[in-house]
Amino acid sequence: MGGTEHLTVERVGATLVLTLNRPEAKNALSLPMLVGLYDGWLAADADDSIRSIVLTGAGGTFCAGMDLKALASDDGAMAGQEYRDRMKEDPDLHWKAMLRHHRPRKPVIAAVEGYCVAGGTEILQGTDIRVAGESATLGLFEVRRALFPIGGSTVRLPRQIPRTHALEMLLTGRPYSAAEAKDIGLIGHVVPDGTALERALEIAEQINANGPLAVEAVKASVYDTAEMTETEGLRHELERGWPIFATADAKEGPRAFAEKRPAVFKRA
């Protein structure tokens, strides 16, 4: 089903689970991980039987960001040299992998345990729904190392949470607990440690039960209209929404409700 030595891919029903799998390095980003991530996003969107994606990390950690030890080495190389050809072919691949320059059309749910800092929190901002274990640690630590959170945080974070909280997170570089991250709106759910993936899969299953064309159109509309005026956004919403009513799935939904049975959506 794909994947690399640092990124595992698993199918759970109609959900594709992508797992950052470098626990010995707290799932710090590597070339194999980035290539695997991007291939995972593409694979999910190419397969109409996949209706949602869950992103998580192995070993009780989400992602500790960039591999600073490799970054500090003489040549700045990261593990996985065999993947350099992919990077040369597509110099934008790492940004697509981190959801900076790519947005999957399927909903993406993050299941966070342990550390989700620096690049981990940057990837998090590209996901749609977020669940964290109660002892998870989040934050953007770049300024502590005289670095810049160039994964999109200075643009995205103030649009996702109140600006005062975004600036505090960006400028102090301090850690945030899962509860604090939920309070400021960065996380949607805080659950007992070790159950973030379970909760994410439950949310995914709820999404999977819905009409896939409607789900994807709703997600697209939310993001497409984010920077529009209200008038422009409402016009765009009609352009996105009206065609959904003409689908066979839109007829199946009300029919199944009337007949008191589960709907069978065929993406048509």
Rank of each mutant, 00 (worst) to 15 (best):
L42H: 02
R174M: 05
G40C: 07
A25T: 12
E122I: 00
R145L: 09
K96F: 13
R145F: 15
H189F: 05
A79G: 10
A64Q: 07
R159F: 01
K106N: 15
L124F: 09
L37R: 00
R51W: 04
S73R: 13
M98Q: 15
T229L: 10
L186C: 06
P175T: 00
H94N: 13
F257V: 14
P23W: 01
T154A: 03
E230Y: 12
E205K: 12
T231H: 08
A58L: 04
V222I: 12
I129N: 05
G152C: 08
I161H: 00
T127H: 14
A111N: 06
K251I: 15
G3E: 06
T15E: 14
K182R: 12
R255N: 14
W41H: 01
T195Y: 14
R156F: 10
E230Q: 12
D75A: 08
E202H: 02
Y83N: 08
K251T: 11
D48Q: 08
D74K: 02
A204K: 08
A43Y: 09
G139E: 02
E168P: 00
D92L: 13
G133L: 03
E168N: 06
G40S: 06
M1V: 08
L140G: 06
H165N: 09
E227F: 05
D85L: 10
N210C: 06
Q160A: 14
W242C: 11
V117P: 11
P262F: 10
D47Q: 08
D45S: 01
N208S: 03
E142K: 03
R100D: 08
P23R: 05
R199F: 03
A209Y: 05
E198Q: 10
Y38Q: 05
G76C: 03
L171N: 12
G36Q: 09
